[in-house]
Amino acid sequence: MCRCRAPLLVSMIAVVLLAGCATTSGASAASAPQPFHVERSGKGRPLVFIPGLASSGEVWNETVAHLQGKYDCHVLTLAGFAGQPAIPAPFFATERRALADYLRSQGLEKPILVGHSLGGVLALAVAADVPELVGGVFIVDSLPFLPASMDPSATADSVRPRAEEMRTLMRMQTVEQRSMQSRMALRNFISDEKKVDVAARWGADSDAETVTQAFYELSTTDLRPELPRITAPTVVLGSWVALKGRVPREAVEAVYQSQYAKLPTHRVVLSDTARHFIMWDDPEGFFRELDGFLGAHASVAQVEPHH
């Protein structure tokens, strides 16, 4: 498999986590912080939307509006991101367990999980943990093990020293340094400058230690061995626009196909126009793929509308 020198996902993770994050924890000693905040709207088949690193659930606003209330939409903002109170480490294990518990406690019937970036990895983890509860997975520019897109021989153990080093360096950065690097990176991930401003604000409102720890855990979590447990139909939307002229499209697609090879239900679709925030950069193409997926898989269960 061809090694991409600077895959969009890897560079995205390495710099968005350097966002101009808040330097103090958002958690209050007087109240127990929750793993995520949920905004719920609409009626019908349940959809659970999970944003990426340092992003607000507002990243799905246009998507929810497009669905016009025809689905029971649960839009998450993860702890420590975009102004939400932080939770103690570990981050990823806590989030995946809490999301599975949420599906059970809400009695959601075969929900479709829609996740972007880190949110996509979390969606995969939950679909592997509780396959009987998940009716579909719609992944937006995520890979089950990011380091392997740079080095196919990478393992969680082999990348841990470098991840620890990166975590230390991130903790040493000033707010100004993170903010500057974040804005430079976001311009590579988002075409619309106004949307760059929005994402930068979410980063500035995120808890720096949460973002740092989430990056470390994401870098050392390899979900590929868990993929065979996923039984739900899965679509993976990928992006390669930022790599045009440097990496052939075929090489980028090969990375996605290789990473998802153990997931028998998957289908990879590469966008030729959108950057990392596909739902922002190419809403028409994104809605077309999402609508097609929901049309094929979201009418299986009859769901009582919530009150």
Rank of each mutant, 00 (worst) to 15 (best):
V10I: 13
S11D: 13
M12Q: 10
V15G: 13
L17G: 11
A19L: 11
C21L: 15
A22C: 15
A27G: 09
S31C: 02
A32Y: 03
R45V: 09
L47K: 09
S56L: 06
S56D: 06
G57D: 05
E58R: 10
V59K: 02
N61R: 11
V64S: 09
D72I: 02
D72Q: 06
H74S: 03
V75P: 00
A79L: 04
A79P: 01
G83N: 02
G83E: 03
R96C: 01
A98G: 04
V114G: 02
H116Q: 14
H116I: 12
H116G: 04
L122C: 11
V126S: 00
D129C: 02
E132T: 11
L133A: 12
V134F: 04
G135M: 11
G136C: 14
D141C: 06
L146I: 04
L146A: 01
L146R: 00
M150A: 13
D151H: 10
S153L: 10
T155P: 07
T155D: 10
D157T: 13
D157E: 14
D157P: 09
R160Y: 07
R162F: 15
T168K: 12
E176V: 04
M180D: 05
Q181E: 07
Q181I: 13
R183I: 13
R187V: 12
S191I: 13
V196S: 07
A199L: 07
A200V: 05
R201L: 12
D205C: 03
A208E: 01
E209V: 01
V211H: 00
R229E: 14
I230L: 15
A232R: 02
W240M: 13
L243P: 01
G245R: 10
E250T: 12
V252Y: 01
Y256Q: 03
Q259Y: 02
T265D: 08
T265E: 06
T265I: 05
L270P: 12
R275P: 06
I278T: 07
W280F: 08
P283F: 03
F287R: 07
L294S: 02
S299W: 11
V300R: 09
V303F: 04
P305K: 03
